[in-house]
């Protein structure tokens, strides 16, 4: 039966229902078309242009992409910074969340209190987080360095030495894993107790139970959190922006991809180049996510699935 025939067979009542349905969906449709689809399509077009927001765009073909990859010194720096960040922050962030969840899944005293404490960093606005860490770790005024100084010890330039600042950001990132921790915690509580009991009867110690039961059973969530961490890692912006005062410093060591994109868009008014950067980032994220999903078959266990 052809589609046309099907349409002809719609009764007035059904047509009215469709219209009413569409009317209900209209707010979302307007939002999607106006605030999602149109920006995506126009962004793709602008990535092939020279566009400064205030003058009409000039079509350049692939120049923005080619220049970025072949002739932009800063692009190489931000790609290095960002890949470094993603490769270290994503696994360590997931590991931190998993370990916190494991700890809070045991029968420790004041478990609820500790759960709230560990989750707390996730609900604190990033701006507040930045201020707190700034005034803890700053080399001149930070509480940590102030303590070192009062003890007659040399201060540590956590946030002002280009070699130390990225590891420091990793530590802050690992501290703020409350959301991932909650997901892990919920999953850990779903692991059947019978599996642990059987393993205990078979003589498995805690480490073997962790390795052979817990990790396989939560592996889909590890994948989920890892994918989210990879994606957000590529988009890392707010904390380095705030901690470096918007400079990407010290010495461009926190100049991550999104900062560079922002700077090109809103400081240099190079919207065409910024859009090209956005599409390159999109392609890279898609690629990394694809690779992660393809590789997941080797380490993710889906209970009840043949895989």
């Amino acid at each position: 039966m052809s589609v046309l025939t099907q349409i002809r067979q719609i009764t007035p009542r059904e047509r009215r229902n469709i219209l009413v349905g569409l009317l209900f969906a209209l707010p979302w449709l307007i939002g999607f078309l106006g605030f999602t689809l149109y920006p995506i399509v126009s962004s793709f077009y602008y990535s092939f242009t020279r566009y400064d927001l205030l003058r009409p765009p000039v079509f350049l073909g692939f120049d923005n992409y080619v220049n970025l990859i072949t002739d932009d010194q800063d692009f190489r720096i931000v790609v290095y910074n960002t890949v470094w960040w993603v490769l270290f922050s994503a696994p360590l962030g997931v590991l931190s969340a998993f370990l916190m969840a494991l700890l809070l899944n045991t029968n420790i005293v004041a478990r609820s209190f500790f759960r709230a404490v560990f989750f707390f960093p996730s609900i604190v606005p990033v701006v507040v987080t930045a201020f707190v860490w700034q005034f803890l770790l700053n080399i001149q005024y930070g509480a940590v360095n102030g303590t070192l100084q009062s003890l007659g010890l040399p201060t540590v330039p956590f946030l002002s030495d280009p070699k130390l600042v990225k590891p420091t950001l990793i530590l802050i990132h690992m501290w703020a894993q409350g959301a991932a921790m909650v997901i892990f915690l919920a999953t850990l509580q779903d692991v059947p107790r019978s599996l642990y009991e059987a393993a205990t009867v078979d003589g498995a110690n805690a480490l073997r139970r962790l390795w052979h039961i817990t990790i396989p059973m939560v592996s889909p969530i590890i994948l989920f959190n890892a994918v989210l961490s990879f994606i957000s890692g590529f988009q890392y912006f707010t904390l380095p922006w705030l901690l470096s005062g918007g400079t990407g410093g010290p010495n461009q060591s926190t100049e991550f991809y999104s900062l560079f994109l922002y700077r090109n868009a809103f400081v240099y008014l190079r919207m065409g180049k910024a859009n090209a950067l956005a599409w390159i980032l999109f392609a890279v994220i898609i690629f990394f996510t694809f690779v992660l999903f393809r590789a997941s078959g080797r380490f993710v266990y889906y209970a009840g699935n043949s895989r």
Partner: peptide
């Protein structure tokens, strides 16, 4: 590094 620290504040 001292300068960078000062600027961050």
């Amino acid at each position: 590094d001292n300068l960078a620290g000062m600027r961050q504040v």
